[in-house]
Structure formats: structure tokens, C-alpha cells
């Protein structure tokens, strides 16, 4: 508890200091993200570097980092945790909350049963498999279902 209070105080003070020091230069920092929704179609495999090659500037990360390869899709959480404003260039918030939400009615693979190309979890009947996969890696359950108290989970997990 004491560690947390001290940590928050330090973070707060450092943040305040950085904010005050750099306020004067803020007018010169333009927005870096713009909407791409008008020219990217649903289901398109996105390769940012196809259009943005060699346009990296300032503190922008390499566009190759965000190419939607299978590796990126599988590990997208790492990127969304620091660059969700970039995600929002193309995706609405509902794209995330289809899976990552506290309360949902239909599992994503059923909601988008007409989109088997999307890497949606729990395809087919997952009832049997979850009894194995949950023991194998409970953190994979926790990332989406943790603290959401899903009624379907509670039916058995009492």
C-alpha cells in the first residue's frame, strides 16, 4: 500500500513537471493520426507500409510494426496498449469491444459467423475445450473474461 502511494506520488510529480516544462512547445506539435475509414474496405489485409513506406518521421514508430500479419493479429494487445489512437484511424471502439468487454450477449465467432477469416476466439463449440485450455493457460481466459463475472461462467464456477 505504501509502495503504491509513493509510486503514484512520484508519477504524479514527474508528470506534472514534464507537463509544465513542455507546455510552451505544445502548439508546434500537430496531430499525427487521421481517419482511414473511407478508403479501407472490410476484410482487407492491411499493410501500412504499402502506402507509408519511408514516411516515418519524428517519434512515429515504423509502419512495418503495424502490418497486419498473423503475428501482429495474434499479439495486437501489445500494440493497442500503447497505440490505440492509431488503431482508431481505421477501427471503431466497437471493433475492440466485440471481444474485449465486460458483458456481451453472443460470442464473437457467432456474431461474425459469416467472417471465418477473422481470428475470433472460441470457434465452434468451445465448451469441452475450455476445460483443457483453462488449465493450460488461465491468463488467456483472464485477459478477456477476468472480473467480468460472465453469467455463463458463473453457472458452473461458483
Amino acid at each position: 500500500m505504501r509502495i503504491l502511494q509513493t509510486s503514484f506520488m512520484v508519477v504524479l510529480l514527474v508528470g506534472l513537471f514534464i507537463f509544465l516544462v513542455s507546455c510552451a512547445g505544445m502548439k508546434g506539435t500537430p496531430n499525427g493520426y487521421s481517419s482511414h475509414a473511407d478508403y479501407i474496405s472490410a476484410g482487407q489485409q492491411i499493410s501500412c507500409s504499402e502506402c507509408h513506406e519511408d514516411q516515418q518521421k519524428g517519434t512515429m514508430k515504423s509502419f512495418a510494426s503495424f502490418n497486419h500479419s498473423a503475428v501482429f493479429v495474434k499479439n495486437h494487445g501489445h500494440y493497442a496498449a500503447t497505440d490505440d489512437r492509431l488503431c482508431a484511424s481505421c477501427h471503431k471502439s466497437s471493433f475492440c469491444t466485440d471481444c474485449h468487454t465486460n458483458k456481451t450477449e453472443i460470442k464473437p465467432s457467432l456474431l461474425y459467423g459469416n467472417r471465418p477469416d477473422r481470428e475470433l476466439p472460441h470457434r465452434g463449440n468451445y465448451m469441452t475445450l475450455h476445460k483443457i485450455e483453462g488449465k493450460l493457460d488461465p491468463s488467456s481466459c483472464y485477459r478477456c473474461h477476468g472480473r467480468s463475472n460472465n453469467e455463463r461462467c458463473m453457472a458452473c464456477h461458483r
Binding site: K27, T29, G32, A80, A81, D84, S93, C96, T97, T101
Partner: peptide, 14 residues
């Protein structure tokens, strides 16, 4: 400027 935004209501923070 600065890619700054303010949100108010119900939202997710990641």
C-alpha cells in the same frame, strides 16, 4: 494539436 483528447462518459481505458 498534440493528439490530445478528453473523454467523458462510459469508455474503456487501454
Amino acid at each position: 494539436k498534440t493528439d490530445a483528447d478528453i473523454r467523458a462518459g462510459r469508455f474503456f481505458v487501454r
